[in-house]
């Protein structure tokens, strides 16, 4: 019957479309998982920092990050080429967010600044086949990743205080607060902000944890300021340097 066979032709097309969409989605999910796992390793590498090995540890972390970009992000970019990035966003957003987290974490430790989205996106341009539209990370994934990095910064701050680097901790504190103040205004503008709202709560808790740690060091130091005959609290006693 003609109708029947026309219908069959029509649905054969749709079947092909759905099959290739699914396969592409699967590949993207896998590439995203690789990015996640290896970005996490970079983050752990940064946490190996101490007062004395800073340059060495960060150098390794940065090299690892470059490897993630070249090996795994490039794979993701390859799988995505020619697709509508928004259509498959749910398949790759976890990996991209973790990558943002690792990259911004490295940058903060290196320079104390926030790595911009435009910088990341220009580094991704290099990975793409020139002929096809390159993957550009969108603002939402960037912000979700940046929100996560504050958790790592909190861990870093506690560690820095242990190492006697009080000022470093205070710099982190200031940075996290600034991020929070900027984000709180932006969050309601984000497309689907339920996930981000949760992250904002976690971020506030992280900020408070850093503040409490700074407070604790401060009052402890202040108690003896008069005793030590100086105006500024002396934090040189903090850290384990002096008995190693």
């Amino acid at each position: 019957m003609t109708t029947n066979s026309t219908m069959r032709d029509e649905f054969a097309k749709h079947a092909d479309y759905l099959n290739s969409l699914n396969e592409k989605r699967e590949k993207v999910v896998k590439a995203s998982r690789d990015v996640t796992m290896n970005s996490k390793k970079v983050i752990f590498q940064v946490h190996r920092i101490s007062k004395y090995n800073k340059d060495e540890v960060l150098l390794k972390a940065e090299n690892d990050l470059v490897a993630v970009t070249n090996q795994f992000m490039s794979k993701l970019v390859k799988e995505l080429q020619g697709t509508d990035f928004w259509k498959l966003r749910r398949a790759y957003t976890p990996g991209v967010q973790e990558y943002i987290e690792a990259a911004t974490f490295c940058r903060f430790c290196k320079t104390g600044t926030l790595l911009n989205l435009s910088e990341i996106n220009s580094s991704l341009l290099a990975l793409s086949d020139k002929s096809i539209e390159p993957l550009q990370i969108n603002v939402l994934d960037y912000l979700l990743g940046v929100a996560d990095v504050t958790g790592e910064l909190m861990r870093l701050a506690i560690g820095r205080i242990s190492d006697g680097e009080i000022e470093y901790a205070q710099k982190i504190c200031q940075f996290v607060r600034d991020l929070y103040r900027e984000l709180i205004v932006i969050v309601p503008l984000m497309d689907d902000n339920a996930e981000m709202k949760k992250k904002m709560e976690v971020m506030l808790q992280s900020a408070i944890k850093i503040e409490n740690a700074c407070f604790s060091v401060h009052v402890r130091g202040s108690e003896y300021t008069p005793l030590l005959g100086t105006d500024n609290p002396d934090f040189s006693f903090f850290g384990v340097s002096d008995f190693e």
Binding site: I158, I161, S216
Partner: peptide
């Protein structure tokens, strides 16, 4: 810190160790 942990129970517990360390430092101080 040599370990690469997943986002799981162990990592959460390890995060707590930092605070123990901090507290002991304070007492030492």
């Amino acid at each position: 810190r040599m370990l690469n942990l997943r986002n799981d129970f162990l990592r959460k517990k390890f995060d707590g160790m930092k605070y123990d360390l901090r507290r002991v430092e304070e007492v030492y101080y």
